[in-house]
Design a protein around this nucleic acid. Structure first.
Lengths: 220, 220
DNA sequence: CACAAAATTGGTCATTTGACCAAATTTATC
DNA sequence: GATAAATTTGGTCAAATGACCAATTTTGTG
């Protein structure tokens, strides 16, 4: 019921396996998870239907493997896209801008990812994958923040995690809005607002000890 | 290809129609959009399969009708749940807390809603429904804000819309996180952070004219 | 009550779909 | 290059599924 389905795995097998996942990704982007059949996937991968079932125990296992691949791919891209920053505020700004650049460049892929995440949530044996996905993305931002914070001492580990979750929530929500009603210009402005808000949130966390008054300034 | 499928519609017809939508909602919550068949829906509604096709042109039309129903239901609930507030900051706080209360109380429903939104996005003839959904939710928060802002003069209409979109993005992103990896305590804290951040964002917008320095305080 | 329109139903159909197997082919190892 | 393991393939199957229709029942209206 997991990802496996093959026997021992030689070199060729692993290559075909990746080929199927790539083909699946292409088919999924075109028609969506619900409308994509195993035959579509096989065709997109240039492989016969039976081959697909030799490498994957079931369609479900294949789809989950695709999601796993997508998560790894995305985390790697997010890390690669983000450059270095001098301080936490800069890191927040660059990370969010870079992340948004990547996500808007791969909108079709993001739709598939949402579909697959929901698909995983519905399966008892794969609910953990959705949690893994969430953790992976939080960790990307958390690592970036911590790399800077360790130098400047602005935030501790827990603070970085909280800020990372905040960033992820914001960018996720804005991505949903962009998908539902595309408007690049408005989204860009919203991202800048999110950057400012996140910076304020982070400043509140790190400034607590020195300037506690700041924290409550605008709050109730 | 729209929502219709029936002839003239008498009183009984409309009742059955609603009954089917309710039944569909129940079936969808149980098994998810992908796994729910027309037979499941008919059974859940206590109606024969053919009756379903008499009231809805196709399964697709039925699912979209369910989404429409869900949107109306949700906007009504959000409005009902939110109380009055003295100022914008209070309105933001109460709206977000009330919204979060409702969403976490209906997590299963929210999963279905995400599934249906993505389903609509995939259909050329229904992509507008996803946009409508987004607009409807923005409008809920925007109206709440404007009701207060009109009195206090803190924000203009455009500002209310921007703040509303910001709130929606944040709560949406946090809801996704909660679905992927449930953690009520952490989510509650995150909501409070979102409240503070939104209040800061709104204060920045309304304070610009009087105290432009405030706007840039934490930003780059 | 009569009667037309609306609504419901049982039964049927063509397709699609995921799965699978026995046979053929390729690959890797000695 | 022989041989066993790994891989691929064509063909087949049972089940599920959305759609639909002719016939029946219910509803509403004069």
């Amino acid at each position: 019921m997991t990802t496996a389905g093959r026997e021992q795995t030689g070199a060729k097998g692993e290559r075909t396996r990746r080929q199927i996942i790539e083909g699946a990704l292409h088919a999924l982007q075109t028609g969506g998870v619900a409308a994509t059949t195993t035959r579509d996937i096989a065709a997109g991968a240039g492989v016969r239907l039976a081959t697909l079932h030799y490498h994957f125990e079931s369609k479900s296992a294949l789809l989950l493997a695709v999601l796993e691949h997508l998560i790894d791919e995305t985390t790697a891209a997010l890390r690669a896209e983000a450059g270095d920053s001098a301080d936490v505020a800069g890191c927040i700004r660059e990370s969010l801008r870079a992340g948004w650049r990547f996500l808007t460049r791969t909108l079709d892929l993001q739709i598939v990812q949402y579909e697959l995440t929901l698909y995983a949530l519905r399966r008892d044996d794969a609910a953990g994958l959705a949690a893994y996905q969430y953790d992976a993305y939080v960790k990307v931002y958390q690592d970036l923040l911590q790399g800077v914070a360790a130098r400047t001492g602005e935030l501790d580990a827990a603070g970085c995690a909280n800020v990372a979750r905040f960033m992820l929530a914001g960018i996720d929500g804005l991505l949903l809005q962009e998908l539902a009603k595309p408007n690049k210009a408005r989204s860009s402005r919203a991202i800048e607002a999110l950057i400012a808000a996140t910076q304020a949130f982070a400043a509140g966390l790190s400034g607590t000890r020195r300037k506690p008054r700041e924290r409550k300034r605008v709050t109730d």
